[in-house]
Amino acid sequence: MAQKILIVEDDKKIRKELETFLNKNGFIAKGLEKFNNTVQDILNENADLVLLDINLPYTDGEFICKEIRKKSDVPIIMVTSRDNEIDELMSLYAGADQYVTKPYNIQILLVKINGLLKRNRKLEKEIQKINCDGFELNIAERVIEKDDKKIELTKNEYSILYYLAKNKGKVVSRDEIMDYLWESEEFIDDNTLSVNIKRLRNKLEELGLTDKIETRRGQGYLLV
């Protein structure tokens, strides 16, 4: 089930764009519109995670964070445009789980959100394998499996295949793959990407799977 993220941010544009972005990424995002009774409003929303701006009208984020913590353990990510150590310490002291500064890197924000949500639902079983029609991608071991056969992947190959598998059935552009790899701190260039795709295809062929990764000219790749 999709999880609910509450955006507490007084800048209307940022709020709307964040909503759009998070909705696109499989969450149900909702922005708070009024800030005169923020603490109660946040608690009423019963969200799975709260993105809380520090500079808000009426009351500031730190105070709100403290008040929420008295009643709820909901994960809170504090967002601010001030980036000094004191503010960071104050936020964490107020009970925030994470702290990001504007302008934040949106992908990193996404990673932080996912990380916090994952930690919060420990009971749910972690996905170990992604089923990709004809083979499985084993996340824990970074191998591809078909029947009894296993083939190991390098870090880059794994990251590429993981991204393709997550967007299975969709065309993914080279730029998007590069973006994803860079965010995962693999700073590869254009040629390396081509080489890795080729190697991935070879490894899939070893398992008897041909044409699993299709090339769409001018658009990108597609895992079928």
């Binding site: 800048d11 544009k13 940022i14 764009e17 964040l18 759009t20 972005f21 696109k24 445009s81 001030r82 500064t101 504007k102 302008p103 934040y104 949106i106 730029d175």
Partner: peptide
């Protein structure tokens, strides 16, 4: 600077939600 970071953040989000050659 803290003020100007807000429109930068907003612009970055708009770009993220509307990816194409121009916004890139």
């Amino acid at each position: 600077i803290h003020e100007v970071k807000i429109p930068i953040a907003a612009s970055k989000l708009i770009i993220e939600n509307n990816k194409n050659e121009i916004t890139k």
